[in-house]
């Protein structure tokens, strides 16, 4: 009677939670791979592969639906409480964000098709430089947010949230540079709009990574920090730190 156990008394519950946890990492891994391939198609001037990337987004959509079914089944069967409930909410929201990362990646792949599969003249490579820089940045953010989720690592999560502030600055700078290009050569305005949309897609991917990091903070501390300033989040985490 009243024996403490390592996990849930119902072991199947542990297995179901672990399955969902792995599913998030699988969806995250697929989203990261899609992002990498989409940016590569731009560098390789490869619209054919860009189309494959767009087509492959369906795998992410399917996994999103599968995850939703798993959440519903788990809630029906286990009626989770406390940390279990927070974890399921976190997973559900993280999966939605990752599915939207997939949607944004499609826009990058679409950029390759717009630029390299039309009769228009090719843009100067200079205007694509910021795409590569920002793609690397958000890829690292996405990777770190998934790592933070996997390890329930708040310090890594806060780093991602902090990086999003940097990303916003970088995005604004990139848009300023783009407008300079337009002023110098008005004929390239079509490409500029495409690139601006690509930059916007990358900025959104960074936003989704930040959201996932925020969910990790919620999961560990039960504090919803999504709409808090960085200072407020850091104050919350300080309160939660048992050493403080």
């Amino acid at each position: 009677m009243n024996e403490m156990t390592e996990g849930h008394t119902v072991k199947r519950f542990d297995e179901e939670m672990q399955f969902l946890h792995r599913l998030v990492l699988e969806i995250g891994g697929l989203a990261q791979d899609q992002l990498k391939r989409a940016v590569q198609t731009l560098n390789d001037k490869d619209p054919a592969t860009a189309r494959e990337v767009i087509k492959r987004d369906q795998e992410l959509n399917d996994l999103d639906i599968q995850a939703d079914e798993e959440f519903i089944n788990l809630i029906i069967k286990r009626q989770p409480m406390a940390k279990d409930l927070r974890e399921i909410i976190t997973i559900s929201k993280a999966v939605s964000d990752l599915e939207r990362v997939g949607d944004e990646v499609r826009k990058i792949a679409q950029l390759t098709i717009h630029i390299y599969d039309t009769d228009r003249s090719l843009p100067t490579l200079q205007i694509l430089r910021d795409i590569n820089t920002m793609a690397n940045f958000v890829s690292n953010m996405l990777s770190a947010s998934l790592m933070a989720f996997d390890k329930l690592d708040i310090s890594r999560a806060i780093k991602v949230i902090r990086q999003d502030v940097e990303l916003e600055e970088e995005y604004k700078s990139a848009l300023r540079r783009l407008s300079t290009f337009v002023m110098e050569d008005a004929r390239s305005v079509g490409h500029m709009i495409d690139v601006a949309l690509g930059l916007r897609a990358l900025e959104r991917i960074g936003g989704h990574a930040k959201n996932i990091a925020g969910y990790v903070v919620f999961l560990v501390t039960s504090k919803d920090v999504r709409h808090d300033s960085l200072d407020a989040i850091e104050a919350t985490l300080k309160l939660h730190d048992p050493r403080s």
Partner: peptide, 11 residues
């Protein structure tokens, strides 16, 4: 202890 009980980790 409360968390372990309500999340079904003992009983």
């Amino acid at each position: 202890l409360t968390e372990d009980y309500i999340t079904g980790r003992f009983g």
